[in-house]
Design a protein around this nucleic acid. Sequence first.
RNA 1: GUGGCCGUAGCUCAGUUUGGUUAGAGCGCCAGGUUGUGGCCCUGGAGGUCGGGGGUUCAAGUCCCCUCGGUCACCCCA
Length: 419
Amino acid sequence: MPEFQAPVGTRDVLPPESARWERLIGLFAGRVGRAGYGLVVSPMFEDVGVFERVGEATDVVRKEMYDFEDKGGRHLALRPEGTASVVRAWVQHRPTLPFKAWYAAPSFRYERPQAGRYRQHHQLGVEVLGSADPDLDVEVIALGWGLYDDVGLSRVRLLLNSLGDATCRPGYLDALKTYLLEHRDKLCDEHKTRIDDNPLRVLDCKRPACVGVTERAPRMVDHLCDECAAHFDRVKSGLGELGIAYDIEPRLVRGLDYYTRTTFEFQAPALESAQNGIGGGGRYDGLAEQLGGPPTPGIGFGIGIERVLLACDAEGVFAAPTATADVFVVDVTGEAALKLVQELRNAGVAADRAFGGRSMKAQFKLADRSGAQVAVVVGPDELDRGIAKVRPLRGTGEEEEEVKLEELVDHVKKRLGTP
RNA sequence: GUGGCCGUAGCUCAGUUUGGUUAGAGCGCCAGGUUGUGGCCCUGGAGGUCGGGGGUUCAAGUCCCCUCGGUCACCCCA
């Protein structure tokens, strides 16, 4: 083992794996860009209060916060998720509404790592502030759905729920509390004491004891006020219009406290590990106000890059593209390659070469491995005559031919079909 | 935070049960076979604090303790 390794729960993404990241992020950027979303780059750490304000009763904040004190005595935290940061940025700068943002950024949670779970993971996400229109909920969900489609995932489940709003949720919480208190002795130890704290969290508990109780618990979807019910109905019908299949999951409450109305989660059943959630989000109509802004509706999601790629592995799709050169310059004299690759690259051709005065045989080996279609060979004889030899490497049956150096770039481009 | 399993070459692993000369293999890498031509083949080479520390012993990769790391699971989440 080397003396220094990546810290616990973090990892390095190197080629060729990193090429999938490039493609995935590129697909997402293209998709949300076409939908009018703009990139937001916000700090990886915030005043710890930003996150405490929005999730004081959640595990993400109570147990998993990656926080520290800086040299100036400020209590900061690496962001555990993307939404709070983006909403804080909106509150601070107040760009005009609707504010449609996307990001590709790391998040941090201090947990024990396991399959599909890291202390630093990366999320693709969008956030929209300024509209309560249920069609927007559908648009946002469709953006996530579309990304899974882009990468070729065919088995993605969409779980959908509504958590109501300030009108109907209090009444529901009372009903839920009453029910849970009646069955308190049957709950798991942790949740026997958390009913008052945040009864919704009990619905999220996966322990058999709690599940046995919550299976028959009152459901928010049965307690929605007229407005929330109408909103939810429109989200469902809108998803239907787009051909997006969903399952209603009345116990889906998600890990953060700020959600209102629509919540959703994307799962990849192909993942056999415990973590099969590959994305999730929801509406948070009270969050901007909690962070000191005016009452402003909002909605967004986060998609875990690592988990999406794991799901792709499980389905055998979205393989790593191999980076290939178009041309490999084999230079016997060591005098020609520097300028030739520069000219080729400037002309838009992917050109590579060997360094270190390698033997011709070694250079050809590298040329072969580079994936190049042709090798450009120059030695003393060619330099004297002002030519290069262009040799096909992929067994296309073509002959090696001699090309004048001043015509080389055009010849290679024509041969490769590069515009 | 709790628990199971695992740490030997760049990678995948054998060797640990029953302690015993200079720790092996395949792949990869480098060179040569071909003084200017890749893939296939042949030959050779480089590369190891056996995760780290301590202990037992004439002797430790092998046994004991501690520790660090990896992995999987619980809880929760992307």
